[in-house]
Structure formats: structure tokens, C-alpha cells
Design a protein around this nucleic acid. Structure first.
Length: 780
DNA sequence: CATTGGCAATTTTTT
DNA sequence: ATTGCCAATG
């Protein structure tokens, strides 16, 4: 127990309240860099240690697989350190390696293995592997436990096929991309094809609802689910099957959700069902040995295009909590102390986000020194911008021994912006990693090989079968394939039913019958091995017997060689997956490939410059951050500029970017940028003008100073904020804000340095403002 | 049937 | 500038 106390002692009072929370609901409003991951991991450890909660009764939802992995690792470390003291009387790091390994694996087995920790998608795909056979949709479609998970490109080709082949519609008028997006939105609102159809007043909507219905048919035929189904289907299943819901409800007694501001309606529904057992009357809710603990920050909500809805976070107090105002509530904790960034960076972030109207009152407090000024740079074009950035990186790296390549991040709005940076980095031989963009699992050769595996795991997966039936060439042409598929459709069975029957093939395939039968026998052979062989050996067999690798080698081109390399990497991925998990099934491996993002592969401790989109940067931090391409139309993106809500989201994205920086922040834009091959003039982003001028440096004189931001910098800038510090604000005071105009103080939160004011502006309504950050003048 | 070349559309962000 | 799609050709 003493060890328990000692880990609680690293926490500030708010964090401590969060960590020590046991039963009932709690909302943790956690600003950027406020130590929320620490709060989450410590709380889980505390539940297990202090409250004797069995790990298998804990459900922890994270936003990425990487976050899940890290969370498990951190908890494991916590336990290992504690046990080291208890059993060896020695700090974990000081133990001999053998003991460390032993201890770690024991901790894994007793505490971590049974913890349900992952993304919504991976967690609920796992639940579906148990219970999907008890589900039947409104049209009687059914799935079995071997279901395939179709990724976004699979889903889109399916839609495309339905639009063009099945409904003979104009691809221009019904772009598969946009139709798929509409369907996805419908699913994320929990609407079935029929329910969606009822809401469609116009032709287009009705057509899309028809596509949606066919789309579900096709998924079911293939025994496949898309990403949205992984969430929606459990909701439906829970709603229609009391027993299934009861089982999972009583299993998951403690539910934690990270990045709660990025959950959508169906995800919320899922959590709600598990927490309340589908009971609508609050008085019937059982909190005796249960909790729901959510962590989030509305200011970092950047996924509304994926139907994320941060009002879910704002409503938590009403939905689950006591609904009391902030001063009295016992179901909300705010983490406002920022441990990550220097004060200048934080002030910039705070002031930028003040421009948003939809917020929860929260202000980030600096705990570190002022640090250097933020540097803003205007370049001629995107090449010059890249040169500027890389030059800064080289200079800083050379001048500061504590910085290595991994200390730098270049963040941009769109994936396409990475090129010029990569070009220069390659030229100079500086190590770098691009996260996101062209995903490993999206490469043709990887998709091909995975299609083999998917067809083996799930014979109903016709899409995958068709992908590989003639890859590499086996002389099975379009005509024979059409014949076989046509027959399957005629009979209402799967393609595999036909393929696996030699006689049918002989009648249908004519000249190619031999090839088809060979192919089918090959697949059958592998299917028999699924239960007995480890996935790695199965894959090896596939690569050899299918002739896929041989075919690539025969091509002899550089490109083909690259592909062989990638296939080899896939094989390594299987080996790694087998090392990290016990009892690896083919389905589990395939699910991990479908649900893993590039982000998950970002390795800790690699000393390479990181390039990524702002979205991908969420949750990460770097000593030095470059925010590039701040131009109207690019960032904020032109598609968001006419919609106030979308514009606020862009601003939150900028806020996320700024708050990734620990010590230094550079912001740049270009005067001219290449777009689709031709040059276009560009205007500086409006966000630049929303940053506090006095924190921005625009010219530099030779060297760029770099001092670690711990302790105050020596610069004597007097910020406007400093002038208003110490003012005695009172409710009713009239103030003038530089941007928002005149308003009246309606509430005062905190005091001294921690003061913030609620101000009702005459034109814009109420906002919470930090008088130290904002430039307020008293009126009258 | 498979390869090649020309033309068009394309870029927001992702589990 | 790059990628995907279609039509014409051996």
C-alpha cells in the first residue's frame, strides 16, 4: 500500500481527484499537456491495486492503437516498479535483466493481459467475434465469426460497383466517394437503410438509400463489415438481445474513454448501453461497483468529419453526472495545469482558441518559463518554405546538444504537403519519418497478399477471392470469372461454393477449368492448415505456393523488387504480432492490419524528424514544432471557410498544432504555392492574425537563440496581459476586448494569476476569457 | 487476353 | 504532378 501512496504523490490535486475516483460517473476535462494519460494509467492501476478490481472488468477505450499500447506499457511499468520494491527491495531499473524480464512477463500475465484496452473499433470487433452470430439485421442479413473487415477502399469499390454496375447510374452524378461518405454518416447516426430512406425528400437521397441497402446486402454476402458496422452492429445487437447486453454490462464494470470529445453518436450509444444496461430511468442506474470515467477536451475536437460530436462531452454532466454548476459538481474535474509547453506558446494557443464561441470554460496555465518567442516566417513558395524549415532544423540541431532529429516535427494540414520537405531531407541525408499518407497496408502487393489470407479465413469473402483468383496470372480470364460469379448469383450462394466443387467448375469454366480447380484446391489446403499452423507459416506457404513472390521476382524491375521487400515486411509484421500476442489467430492478425494506422507504427525513441498532418499529431509532443502552410484556403481549408462551425474546427486544429510544441514553435506560410501543377498566389492565414502580435517574432538576426524553457527567459517583453494582471475585476464591469468589442463581466472564476472572466459581449454572447492573456480594457 | 498510351480528375482530415 | 481509368492494339 505504501507503494500506492507514493505514485499518488506525483500528482497535483486535480489529477489526484481523477485518479482516486472509484465508483460513479466522472468527467475529466483535460487541457493539452495537462497529464491526462498519467491520470488514466494511474487510475487503472489504482482500481486494480487499491480497490481490488479484476482487470478483466475494466474497459479502456483509446483513440489509436498506439495509445492503447502505450497505456498498457505504462501500467505494466507501474506494477513492475512496485513489485520490484516489494519483492526485491530494489528499484526496477537496478535489477538484473533476467529479473526484469521475469517480472515484466508476470505483470503482463496477472494484470495487463485481461485488461480490455483498445480503440472502439478493435474492442468491439473482438466482442463481435463472440456474439455476431446472435445478430440479425432488419432484413434478416446474418454474419458469422469469421467476418472480414473491409477498409475504406474496399467499401468504396463496393459502392462504386453498385452505382455503376447494379444501378447503372452516372458515376459523375453519384461519386462513389461521396455516396460512401453519406452512407457512413447515416450509419454513424445509427440509421438502417430503411430508416435512412424515410428521411430522404429528394431523388438523390432516395437513390443513395437504395445504394445503402444494396451495399449492406453485399457486405452480408461477403460476410464482411465496414468500420462503421464495428460500432453500429454491437449497438443493434445490444438493443435486440437482452442476454448479450447483460453479459457485457456486468463484465465491464469500470469503463474509461479517452478523447471523449471525438466520440460520435453510435459510440456514445454503445457506452451508454454498457453503463446503464439500457435502463432509461436514472434512479435505476447501479453505481455500487461501477464507474464511467471519460477524459476529453472540447478544444481539441478535430474529427467532426467523421461524425465526432463534442457536444457529447459537453453533455456528459447532464447525461451521467450530477449536472451541478462547476463550483459544486462532484462529477467533473478540470486539469488546467500545462506541463508541456513554455508560456509564450501556451498564451498563443489560449488567445487563438478564444476566437471560438463554442467552448467549455477552461484555460491552460503555464508551469514552465516563458521560453523563446514564436517565430513566424513568410517564404516565396513551398520550396523556399521547406528550405527555411530544414535550415532551422539543421542549425538548431547543431547548436543544441540536447536536441536530436527526433526532437523536431513538421506539421501540415494535408498529406500532400510533405513532398518538398521530404525532397530536401533526402538530399541532405537527414533521417525522417512520414506518418500517415500512403499507408503500408494500402499498397497493392500488401492488399493482394492480405486478400489471400482473408479468403482463407473467410471463404465467403468473394471480393478477396476475386482479387487473387488470377493474381498472379493463372489464365483465368474475365469470361470464366463472369460465368462463375453469375452462377453463384443465380443459385444464391457464394462464389466459393461454386469454386470448391470440381464438377461445377468443370461445367462452367471450360478451358480454364484446370486452373480454377488448382486454385480452389490450393485455397482449400490452406484453409485446412488454419487451425494447426501458426499464421507466419501459413503466410509463408501462401507466398510460396501461390507463386506470387516468384512472379514478382520474374518481373525483375526495381518496382517489383520494392514489392518483394514490402511483402517481406508484411511477413515480419506477422512475426512481430506473434511475439507480442499469445494465441494469435488468423482473424486477429487480419483485424489488426485492417484497424491499424500508420500512426501506430511511429516508434518511440527513433531519432528522425517527424512529418505528419495536424490530425495525426494529436496526443504527441515535440521540443521543436514547425507549423507550415498557414495560408487561406489551405489552412483554414477552403472547404471550411464558409461554415462557421467548420472554421472553428480548423481553429481547434491549429490549437492542437500549437500545443504540440514544448519549447519552440515556428509558423510559416508561402506567398505562392503549386496546386495541381500550376502556381497559385496564396494569402496568409487568418489564424496568424489571431495570434498575439507581441509573442511573434518575424525577422531574425542571424542566429536563432534556443534556450530550454525551464526557468524564465531573460527577455523583458512586457505583454499586454501583464498590464492587466492584478486588476480587481468585479461582476458588472464593462470591458473592451480587442476583437470582440464591448461586453460585461458576468462571472469571475478563481483569483490572482488563476483568474478568468465570463464576459457577455454585446454582439457575440458569452465567452470565458483569461484577462491575463486577452487584451482587456476597462470601459468607463 | 494482356499491355500500352492517352486523358481526366484530383487533395482535407482517418478508425 | 501524380494517379486511375478507358480504349486501342498485338
Amino acid at each position: 500500500m505504501t507503494a500506492t501512496i507514493d505514485f499518488l504523490s506525483h500528482l497535483n490535486p486535480s489529477q489526484r481527484r481523477a485518479v482516486e475516483h472509484f465508483c460513479g460517473p466522472l468527467l475529466v476535462v483535460a487541457g493539452a499537456g495537462s497529464g491526462k494519460t498519467r491520470a488514466l494509467t494511474y487510475r487503472i492501476a489504482n482500481l486494480i491495486l487499491e480497490h481490488r478490481v479484476d482487470p478483466e472488468n475494466i474497459l479502456a477505450v483509446t483513440f489509436t492503437n498506439k495509445a492503447a499500447r502505450e497505456m498498457k506499457e505504462r501500467i505494466q511499468k507501474l506494477f513492475a516498479e512496485r513489485l520490484a520494491i516489494a519483492e526485491f527491495g530494489e528499484r526496477f531499473e537496478l535489477l538484473p535483466e533476467y529479473d526484469q524480464v521475469q517480472l515484466k512477463s508476470r505483470v503482463w500475465r496477472t494484470y495487463i493481459k485481461d485488461l480490455w484496452c483498445g480503440t472502439f473499433h478493435s474492442l468491439f470487433s473482438r466482442i463481435l467475434r463472440f456474439d455476431i452470430e446472435k445478430y440479425q439485421d432488419e432484413k434478416g442479413r446474418r454474419w458469422n465469426r469469421n467476418f472480414s473487415i473491409f477498409d475504406e477502399s474496399d467499401a468504396q469499390s463496393l459502392v462504386k460497383e453498385i452505382v455503376t454496375k447494379q444501378l447503372n447510374l452516372d458515376e459523375k452524378k453519384f461519386e462513389p466517394r461521396s455516396v460512401r461518405y453519406t452512407i457512413s454518416n447515416a450509419k454513424n447516426q445509427g440509421l438502417s437503410p430503411q430508416e435512412f430512406a424515410k428521411e430522404q425528400p429528394n431523388y438523390r437521397g432516395r437513390v443513395i438509400s437504395e445504394v445503402y441497402s444494396y451495399y449492406q446486402d453485399r457486405l452480408a454476402e461477403n460476410n464482411a463489415l465496414d468500420f462503421d458496422d464495428l460500432i453500429l452492429m454491437p449497438v443493434r445487437l445490444f438493443q435486440q438481445n437482452e442476454q448479450v447486453l447483460g453479459y457485457w454490462h456486468s463484465k465491464f464494470r469500470h469503463i474509461l474513454v479517452d478523447e471523449y470529445q471525438d466520440t460520435n453518436r453510435t459510440q456514445y450509444e454503445l457506452i451508454s448501453l454498457l453503463v446503464t444496461h439500457g435502463e432509461t430511468k436514472r434512479s435505476n442506474w447501479e453505481w455500487r461497483d461501477r464507474s464511467v470515467f471519460v477524459v476529453g477536451d472540447a478544444d481539441q475536437s478535430i474529427y467532426s468529419f467523421r461524425m465526432a460530436d463534442f457536444t457529447i462531452l459537453l453533455d456528459f454532466q447532464q447525461d451521467f453526472g450530477d449536472g451541478l454548476p462547476d463550483e459544486d459538481t462532484r462529477t467533473m474535474v478540470k486539469l488546467e495545469e500545462n506541463y508541456r509547453s513554455c508560456e509564450n506558446i501556451l498564451q498563443a494557443a489560449n488567445q487563438l482558441i478564444e476566437n471560438n464561441t463554442q467552448r467549455i470554460d477552461k484555460i491552460l496555465r503555464a508551469t514552465r518559463g516563458a521560453g523563446e518567442q514564436i517565430f513566424s516566417h513568410k517564404a516565396d513558395d513551398e520550396m523556399a518554405e521547406a528550405e527555411f524549415v530544414i535550415n532551422q532544423i539543421r542549425t538548431l540541431e547543431r547548436q543544441n546538444p540536447e536536441l536530436d532529429w527526433g526532437s523536431f516535427a513538421i506539421l501540415y494540414r494535408t498529406n500532400a504537403q510533405s513532398r518538398p520537405f521530404e525532397d530536401i531531407l533526402v538530399r541532405l541525408g537527414i533521417p525522417y519519418t512520414v506518418v500517415g499518407g500512403l499507408k503500408f497496408y494500402d499498397r497493392k502487393e500488401i492488399k493482394d497478399v492480405l486478400a489471400y489470407l482473408r479468403a482463407i479465413a473467410n471463404p465467403a469473402d468473394t471480393v478477396s477471392l476475386l482479387r487473387v483468383i488470377n493474381t498472379p496470372r493463372r489464365g483465368i480470364g474475365k469470361a470464366t470469372i463472369d460465368n462463375l460469379v453469375g452462377a453463384a448469383q443465380e443459385l444464391g450462394t457464394t462464389l466459393w461454393e461454386i469454386l470448391s466443387d470440381e464438377t461445377s467448375v468443370n461445367t462452367l469454366a471450360g478451358r480454364s477449368a484446370r486452373s480454377v480447380n488448382n486454385f480452389a484446391q490450393m485455397i482449400s489446403r490452406w484453409q485446412e492448415q488454419v487451425e494447426t499452423l501458426p499464421v507466419s507459416e501459413l503466410l509463408q506457404g501462401v507466398l510460396e505456393d501461390s507463386g506470387y513472390v516468384q512472379d514478382l521476382l520474374n518481373q525483375g524491375t526495381d518496382e517489383a523488387e520494392d514489392r518483394v521487400q514490402n511483402v517481406q515486411e508484411l511477413f515480419n509484421a506477422v512475426l512481430q504480432f506473434q511475439e507480442e500476442n499469445e494465441e494469435v489467430t488468423l482473424q486477429a492478425f487480419l483485424a489488426s492490419t485492417a484497424l491499424s494506422s500508420d500512426l501506430d507504427n511511429l516508434k518511440e525513441g527513433q531519432t528522425a524528424v517527424s512529418l505528419m498532418t495536424l490530425h495525426a499529431s494529436k496526443g504527441l509532443e515535440f521540443p521543436v514544432v514547425f507549423l507550415v502552410g498557414l495560408e487561406q484556403g489551405l489552412f483554414p481549408n477552403y472547404r471550411s471557410m464558409n461554415d462557421p462551425n467548420a472554421l472553428e474546427e480548423e481553429r481547434r486544429l491549429c490549437y492542437v498544432g500549437i500545443t504540440r510544441a514544448q519549447e519552440r514553435l515556428f509558423i510559416s506560410h508561402a506567398r505562392e504555392r503549386r496546386l495541381y501543377g500550376n502556381r497559385e498566389p496564396a494569402m496568409r492565414s487568418q489564424f496568424l492574425d489571431e495570434l498575439p502580435e507581441e509573442l511573434l517574432a518575424t525577422h531574425h538576426l542571424g542566429r536563432i537563440p534556443y534556450t530550454k524553457g525551464v526557468g524564465s527567459s531573460t527577455s523583458q517583453r512586457t505583454t499586454v496581459g501583464k498590464q492587466s494582471f492584478g486588476e480587481n475585476w468585479q461582476v458588472g464591469d464593462r470591458v473592451l476586448h480587442k476583437k470582440f468589442g464591448e461586453g460585461e463581466v458576468t462571472h469571475i472564476f478563481g483569483s490572482g494569476r488563476k483568474i478568468s472572466l465570463a464576459i457577455k459581449f454585446d454582439s457575440l454572447g458569452q465567452k470565458i476569457i483569461d484577462p491575463i492573456v486577452a487584451q482587456l480594457q476597462r470601459v468607463e
